[in-house]
Design a protein around this nucleic acid. Structure first.
Lengths: 155, 155
DNA sequence: AAAAGAGTTGGTCTATAAGCCGGATTCTGT
DNA sequence: ACAGAATCCGGCTTATAGACCAACTCTTTT
């Protein structure tokens, strides 16, 4: 599932999945999606149920004495919101207000969905276009040395 | 599949693949093409299905905590448009409006297709001739140091 | 010159998304 | 415990972008 989609979010924080996401989820027998924070940018990551169980199992298994590992575990695992949806409906998804806050989408109407294959990202529209045109948002470079256990993973 | 082709695009953003591309696709049993952004220039890259699955798998597996890797993942994966076509038809391809915008082909009529073997590029005609005559294009130069994981790839 | 294949264009129809509305359920405060 | 209020969730309506269908023109080939 790749590519760009523009969707609107209503004043109550609800977002409807585009049709092509819905049909893809249905054909893969997925009945839940998991929304969580992106560790680096003011945006959200969305995983499908099966993908999430692999990722979360892996993350949980890492030894958490390393502060960087610990921080990433907190961010990803600690903010995960599991959404079971009705496969027959329009798959309306409520983004929890804490995550809306984090992605700066409170009181905004337009979101961008960025399909990355096995997951997708949710961005507030202006933030996304800033980033695409090269404008810098907050601090870019993660200039710490990452532990090997994290380096080998892809979120 | 090499060489130059001039094609027209209609007001709805539809483009017809030249006959030699079609026969090439058929003889290779390809049933889909993937259009996405070029990371450097205002143009589009088109991959065939088999080529794309290799490229996207590789890109996805890279560790995305590196901001440069992440940006390339956004550009290539996050803008990909998958087009399944009817092999018996004329292989009309709709270029999504986001990509038309990026390649500056809105309200233009003429495109250039540049065959690069296992992929080809789509350029708006004037941009292409400007580039060929050495004129400058407004685009960002990748003057950053690329991580090894990216350097070893070819897009 | 005729015919066949390729390229281009236009029209119509359907699927999809966005906004609105109303009902239901939960929460809160008295 | 009850009433009012706020939040949550599904259905309906309308506008529009994209898919489908088909015709027309141009070029090439024999």
């Amino acid at each position: 599932m790749y590519g760009f989609n523009s969707v609107s979010i209503d004043s109550k924080g609800r977002m409807a999945l585009p049709a092509r996401y819905r049909s893809n989820l249905l054909s893969n027998d997925e009945t839940s999606i998991i929304i969580t924070k992106d560790p680096q940018y003011p945006s959200l990551k969305v995983y499908f149920g099966s993908e999430w169980s692999d990722l979360s199992d892996h993350l949980k298994s890492l030894q958490s004495l390393d502060p960087i590992v610990r921080k990433i575990q907190w961010t990803i695992l600690g903010n995960a919101s599991v959404n079971d949806f009705d496969p027959s409906g329009r798959m309306l998804v409520l983004i929890p207000s804490e995550l809306r806050e984090y992605a700066e989408i409170n009181n905004k109407r337009k979101l961008c969905l960025i399909g990355m294959g096995n997951k997708f990202e949710i961005w507030e529209q202006e933030n996304w276009s800033l980033r695409q045109t090269g404008g810098s948002l907050s601090t870019e470079i993660l200039d710490v040395v990452l532990p090997e256990s994290i380096k080998s993973m892809s979120f």
